[in-house]
Amino acid sequence: MRYHLEKSLQELKDEIGRLGGMVEESLDKTFLALQTMDEALARDVIIHDDAIDHAESNIEKKCLSLFALQQPLARDLRMIGSTLKMITDLERIADHAADISELILRLAPKPQAIHPDIFRMAEKARNMVGRSIDAFINQDMETARAVCRDDDAVDQLFNELVMHIATQIKSGDRSVEQLIDIMFIVKYLERIGDHATNICEWVVYNETGMHQHLQHPQENLEETQQD
């Protein structure tokens, strides 16, 4: 029964897996380019972003046509609805990889030491993204919740790095322009962690039917008060 919908949902998952793979590849290339100040690699990420946008919009079209033609309910409704939401997060993550790559192109001509915590932060964010995609495809609540917890470590590194960069700017030892560029990289990394968290929130929604913010406890409180 509902053979067609069943089949379409499987295809949808496969496509999310493919899109996820492309996004992960962009991140890997970006972070490698950041380490080696490899301009060719950074350019490659920027060019490749179109393909990711294209894959995202294909999935979006599939979801919308499933709504129109299959009129999904309950579990199917939640799955297709959350797919529609999570692919936006995936696409945003890829955008941030491209954003960082743009900054690498600006930094590369006059390479300067990058704080090792930035690489730690990148590593953590990259790991969150990979696990959030797996959690979504396998509908794995435990991993989803764990990823959300990991976001605290990324946020912590973000705060520390911002302080550190602010001190550097004040000290006047390095080019302010470069420090601002690095500050942006740190901000994008923090956003990537947030998007991975969003994806995990949709995993939880798929199971419970409730969309809750799982990252910052304060925000969570406000949300419930509004309801």
Partner: peptide, 11 residues
């Protein structure tokens, strides 16, 4: 059972 019925996965 409700879930299976309304998603057309019954029987």
């Amino acid at each position: 059972k409700t879930e299976r019925y309304i998603t057309g996965r019954f029987g």
